[in-house]
Amino acid sequence: MDKIKYKFKIATDPFDPYREIEKWQINNQMAAMSIFIGRVREIDQFGSQLKQLEIHHYSGLTEKLIEKHLSEITQKIESFSALVIHRVGFIDPLEPIVLIAVSADQRGIANQYCSEILEVTKFKVPFWKKEWTYKGSSWVKNNTVLST
């Protein structure tokens, strides 16, 4: 029987990324693991103090697009395993929004696909962010581009 090489979850409630990794890695240990945890910023896109972030998504299409991408990676890479969790709903500043953990037999593969999956969640999957401050709310128009 083929081992399922990836797991994707939409989280409607707060989650502990370290606990999720601990559970997942029991059956997904390889030589290299890359982890990304994205948290809510404390300020909005205009520099005001953020009260909460609200995330909407298109149920059904979100899962389909992420799972398609993860499946395509598994077609290319034999030793690959991934865990992806993305929050929706109202989230407080500094709470986790997204967790991506990738196990592989080489660090280059783990790092590359951890980064690639993150960019997919940012630009290729139907999630939308709305920022709430103490003065009102605004939709995020564009995601930040990848910078180093």
Binding site: P126, F127, W128, V140
Partner: peptide
Amino acid sequence: IVAINKEISSLEATVKDNDEVAFMPIFTGG
């Protein structure tokens, strides 16, 4: 961004009876 029956599509795509057509702003997840 357009999706038809939960597949990313385009504004030029032709729609059929009973299709689900979604119009979405630019994605901002992650």
